[in-house]
């Protein structure tokens, strides 16, 4: 019997914001959107299973088609029901990512104003197409480059099925090029993402961490 004991105070956890920017354009109709919806449910389930990640990870969801909708504001995963996505229209990808960047800045300001510690936020973009012609791809690429370079956020893009790799690569920071999703392995990706976030939310600055194996969906380096 160990004589040492003692209660711990009710401290709150530092936060890690992950913004999911999801393509719901018409081309995602059918199996892709169904797989994406299942993947999101699996993601929520996996995060909630992880004691630390579930207390640290805030998720927000932005979807884009012919418009952009912020359908889930930043919140701990256990506090909301995962939305059921439906397809709608074209691909306002740039507007959606810009909204994500703004949301991150706003959230960081809120963290600071309310005295909360936070990890570097991340944006996960998933798309099966390419941005509409009226979208400012070059401008967004510059914003992402500077944002990543200045350690304001992390940015990862996942290409689904017939996505335009060259166009997506143009947007991404050179250090983290887009990665193709193998077939429609959304569930495998989100399971991997939840495991990876579990590792990130327990890590220290710049820590060399072993990410879970990416087999099942693609190759990805963080």
């Amino acid at each position: 019997m160990n004589p040492f004991g003692g209660e711990s105070p009710e401290n709150y956890e530092q936060k890690c914001l992950c913004v999911l920017v999801l393509d719901v354009s018409a081309s995602m109709q059918g199996a892709p959107i169904a797989s994406l919806n299942q993947g999101l449910i699996d993601f929520q389930y996996e995060v909630i299973k992880d004691y630390t990640a579930s207390n640290r990870l805030e998720v927000s969801i932005i979807i884009f088609g012919s418009e952009v909708w912020a359908i889930q504001p930043p919140a701990l995963v256990s506090t909301f029901d995962m939305p059921q996505l439906t397809t709608r229209g074209s691909t306002k990808l740039v507007d959606a990512v810009r909204l994500a960047i703004k949301q991150i800045e706003d959230r960081k300001q809120w963290y600071k104003a309310t005295g909360q510690n936070y990890y570097r936020p991340m944006i996960i973009l998933m798309t099966d197409g390419e941005p509409d012609n009226d979208q400012d791809v070059k401008g967004l690429a510059m914003e992402i480059y500077h944002g990543v370079q200045n350690k304001k956020f992390l940015f990862y893009a996942i290409g689904v099925q017939n996505y335009n790799h060259a166009k997506l690569a143009q947007i991404c920071h050179p250090a983290t090029p887009p990665m193709p999703l193998d077939r429609l392995q959304f569930s495998a990706f989100f399971k991997w993402l939840s495991n990876s976030i579990g590792v990130i939310t327990k890590s220290k600055e710049g820590e060399k961490i072993s990410m879970p194996p990416v087999s099942g969906w693609t190759q990805m380096e963080l």
């Binding site: 003692g6 711990s8 105070p9 401290n11 956890e13 104003a113 909360q116 510690n117």
Partner: peptide
């Protein structure tokens, strides 16, 4: 987090 009060929530001030 186990031994110090280091990240508490003030309901009145919401901080």
């Amino acid at each position: 987090k186990a031994a110090f009060e280091c990240n508490l929530y003030d309901k009145e001030k919401n901080i």
